[in-house]
Amino acid sequence: MSQPIYAIVAEFGDPDDLLVAAEKVYAEGYRKVEAYSPFPVHGVAEALGNDCSKTRWTCFLSGVAGGLGGYQLAPDDTRSV
């Protein structure tokens, strides 16, 4: 009986090859894929189907909360002096 394959690792010498490979792998239907690079290679994350809309929303909502919180700091004492 052959051993089940857990994972396959491939190394690319050029960022562009990585990008092409990522697109192909995704097109083949693989989803549990990750690409590692020492600097951002634009498009790879998208090619692998990642999107970070959650991060954006979290940031936006935290920003709104922070802004509103900031206004709370101002005194409610509206006496005109």
Binding site: F39, A45, C59
Partner: peptide, 17 residues
């Protein structure tokens, strides 16, 4: 930090923000 594509994607969006 592992330099994964998903890391970079979040990193860049956070950095821009």
């Amino acid at each position: 930090w592992r330099g994964a594509a998903s890391h970079w994607q979040r990193y860049e969006s956070a950095y821009i923000m």
